[in-house]
Simulated scan of single mutants.
Amino acid sequence: MNNMLISGAASGIGAATARLFHARGWRVGLLDVDERALTALAAELGGAWHAPLDVVDGAAVKTALADFCAQSGGRLRLLFNGAGILRTGAFADIELEQHARLVEINVLGVLNLCHAAYPYLKVTPEAQVINMGSASALYGVPQLASYSASKFAVRGLTEALELEWREHGIRVGDLIPPFVNTPMVRSQAQRPAVMQRLGVRLEAEQIAEAAWKQAHARRVHRPVGLQFGLLFNLGQITPGWVNRLLMGWLSRR
């Protein structure tokens, strides 16, 4: 049986992904800081393995990986890095500690999980990492400055590891959606102009389906949604100033 470990599993995209893969026969492991929601989801999925975890805690991440993979003969078919937080608003109006915490979770958390998972991925046929990216990694987004920066980092790590780990048979890729209707997005007090222009058109279940496709493909970047797919592909072939112009228009109130 294929197995996968999901961070940020208790709600939103992580929970939708866990439900989908479980329904299709995978053994899923669940990680999240929200212990109550995590326990409820694990029960819903028939007693799925789960552990409360702050992905910033490198030692705890290593322990969780060892515990989960020990139940599968030391193997890990898929790591899904879904843990992340969002804070919208003018950069200078957000406390520095909040920026730092966002970067810790969104970047250091991915580093911790990838590093701890590597030994188990390396010995597993068709092993794969899927990182949760974002449309904000296409060009820096006003009012999402630190979030955008964190997703640029995730994109860079994805591309580097895809090349570095290829020789070990490990595929690495990311999902790149625009705004998704999740508790994280709904909880934002401020909606940046780009969010208002593009709208919040995707549901968590659509991202889960994209994760399923990615788990059976050799693609590095997977933009999600027709609207953003066109923007992403355009951004790969147009000069940087065109992308800047487009982002400036999308961010204008």
Rank of each mutant, 00 (worst) to 15 (best):
A70C: 11
Q71V: 04
Q71C: 05
S72M: 07
S72F: 14
G73F: 09
G73W: 08
G73K: 09
G73R: 12
G74K: 05
R75C: 09
R75S: 06
R75E: 11
R75P: 01
L76H: 07
L76W: 05
R77S: 10
R77T: 13
R77N: 14
R77Y: 08
R77C: 07
L78S: 01
L79W: 00
L79C: 04
F80V: 10
F80D: 02
F80Q: 05
F80Y: 12
N81I: 12
G82N: 13
G82E: 03
G82Y: 01
A83Y: 03
G84F: 02
G84M: 09
G84T: 13
I85P: 13
R87G: 04
R87V: 12
T88Q: 13
T88R: 06
T88S: 14
T88G: 14
G89N: 05
G89H: 06
A90T: 14
A90S: 13
F91D: 13
F91W: 14
A92L: 15
A92P: 15
D93V: 15
D93R: 15
E95M: 15
E95I: 14
E95P: 14
E95W: 11
L96P: 06
L96S: 14
L96K: 13
E97T: 15
Q98T: 15
H99P: 14
H99Q: 11
A100D: 13
R101Y: 09
L102R: 06
L102A: 10
L102N: 06
L102P: 06
V103D: 02
E104Q: 14
E104F: 02
E104P: 05
I105C: 02
N106D: 13
N106E: 07
N106V: 01
N106L: 03
V107C: 11
V107N: 06
V107G: 06
L108C: 12
V110A: 11
V110R: 05
V110Q: 08
L111N: 02
L111V: 14
L111K: 01
L111S: 02
N112A: 12
N112S: 11
L113F: 03
L113R: 02
H115L: 07
H115N: 11
H115F: 07
A116E: 08
A117D: 05
A117K: 01
A117V: 06
A117E: 05
P119A: 11
P119Q: 10
Y120L: 10
Y120K: 08
L121P: 01
L121Q: 03
K122D: 13
K122C: 14
K122Q: 15
K122Y: 12
V123N: 12
V123R: 13
V123G: 09
V123Y: 09
T124R: 05
T124P: 02
T124Y: 02
P125E: 08
P125N: 01
P125Y: 00
E126L: 03
A127F: 03
A127L: 11
Q128W: 01
V129S: 07
V129P: 03
I130V: 06
M132R: 07
M132V: 09
M132E: 04
G133C: 01
G133D: 00
G133E: 03
G133F: 03
S134F: 03
S134P: 04
S134E: 00
S134M: 02
S134G: 04
A135Q: 00
A135W: 02
A135G: 10
S136K: 00
S136M: 06
S136V: 12
S136Q: 05
A137E: 03
A137C: 09
A137P: 01
L138V: 10
L138W: 01
L138R: 01
G140Y: 01
G140E: 00
